[in-house]
Simulated assay, not measured.
Amino acid sequence: MAAARAVRMTEEAGTASLFDRVGSFLRDHRLDPTPANYAFAYHLIASPKGPVARAVEALTESGVRISQSDVDAMNLDVQAQERPDAAKKADGLVARTQMQVEGFADMVTAMRVETEGFGRDLAASAAAMTLSTDLGKGEALAASQIARITATMIARVRTAEAQLETATREASELREKLEEARDNARRDPLTELPNRRAFEEAFTVQAAAGETLCIAVCDVDHFKSVNDRFGHAVGDRVLKAIGEALSQSCPGHLVARYGGEEFAILFSGVTVDAARALMETARTTVSTKRYRLRETDAPLGEITFSAGLTCAENTERLGTAFHRADRLLYAAKSAGRNRLRIG
């Protein structure tokens, strides 16, 4: 009993010590005590030799505190390493369901072809029996009965064909809805751009294929003041306008709304100089446009964005490259906003 109590006290002391260290880390770096930040600090302290801990050590070795944006970027790696990805499981379920639906549709189509052929053969046999005149009386009676049975079978085949046609149509509609659901899960409902999930999946697929990839991270300058002065409906229209400008300026590349007022662009198969030219075009397009309120035609004021651009190295994780682009973004903001930083 005493031994068990001693073990329990030791465990409680260890838990308290870990809890205190997590709290101290958040206080030292002036991070809000949110669940995500607690989880990040716990992972960092519980795995002091892990890649995230090494990244934090490199950032803070000169006495600099890490920022919330640093934590958010590095959390990409933590989530990729640890979380049981429910979204991927759901994707797997949808994919399996879609395969089953497609298999069912193929089976129904094959059955329709077979029943149509069977129906034609039965109809031809019945017609031949009815028209035959060289049969004896007994044979004619038997043929009449066979023709009647055959006609009944034909009617049943026609009914089965109609039911199979309905099933085929329903399977096709279900397949289309599954495709729509999978697409919606990767699309931002406001801007109709790909979302963060689609961006991360595209990076993984293209990196595995050996593509040359560059990442740009953009953030609308002074967006909070737009919402405060004009309301969220106007803020939403600003986000849509910037999403359209980025998409038009970067054709052939993935433009995603990453979250809030932040956008991310995945450039594939181009040099950093080519990506820079496209980003500068987008930045100029947005900053030179004169935005007005739809209701009153009053000027909205200058709308700009800042951005960071970097190229991902071979085998580099998304979290690492994204974090570098994000730091360049904040360097652009610190330098006066409405500019692009490359690194």
Rank of each mutant, 00 (worst) to 15 (best):
T109L: 06
T168C: 10
A41S: 07
T152V: 04
M153F: 08
Q248I: 05
A241E: 06
A241L: 06
A233H: 02
F322N: 05
A282I: 09
Q163P: 00
V226F: 12
D188S: 06
A140S: 15
T150C: 11
T315K: 14
D297A: 13
E11F: 08
E192C: 02
L164W: 02
F263C: 01
A207L: 14
Y42W: 11
L141P: 00
E11G: 00
T285H: 09
S17K: 01
R257I: 04
E201M: 01
L131Y: 08
S172C: 04
A95L: 11
A36P: 01
T133M: 13
D72A: 15
T97G: 02
A185T: 02
D297K: 15
R148A: 15
V108D: 01
T15S: 04
L76P: 02
C214T: 15
L141C: 05
K224L: 00
A332Y: 13
T34C: 08
T115C: 06
L340H: 10
F322R: 00
V7R: 15
G243I: 05
I265C: 09
A73K: 03
E116S: 14
D236C: 00
Q81N: 02
R65A: 06
A39P: 04
A105V: 04
P35Q: 10
T281Y: 00
G210A: 07
G63A: 04
K137V: 11
Q79E: 14
R30F: 14
E180A: 13
E295L: 03
I154A: 08
I154D: 06
S125M: 12
E116H: 02
S144F: 07
R96Y: 12
K89T: 14
E176Y: 01
V101F: 11
K88G: 12
T10C: 00
P194F: 00
H222M: 07
T304A: 11
T130L: 13
A123S: 06
D183H: 13
A264M: 08
E82L: 15
D236M: 05
A277M: 09
A147S: 14
A167M: 15
S24T: 12
P251F: 10
A181T: 13
Q98T: 04
V255D: 02
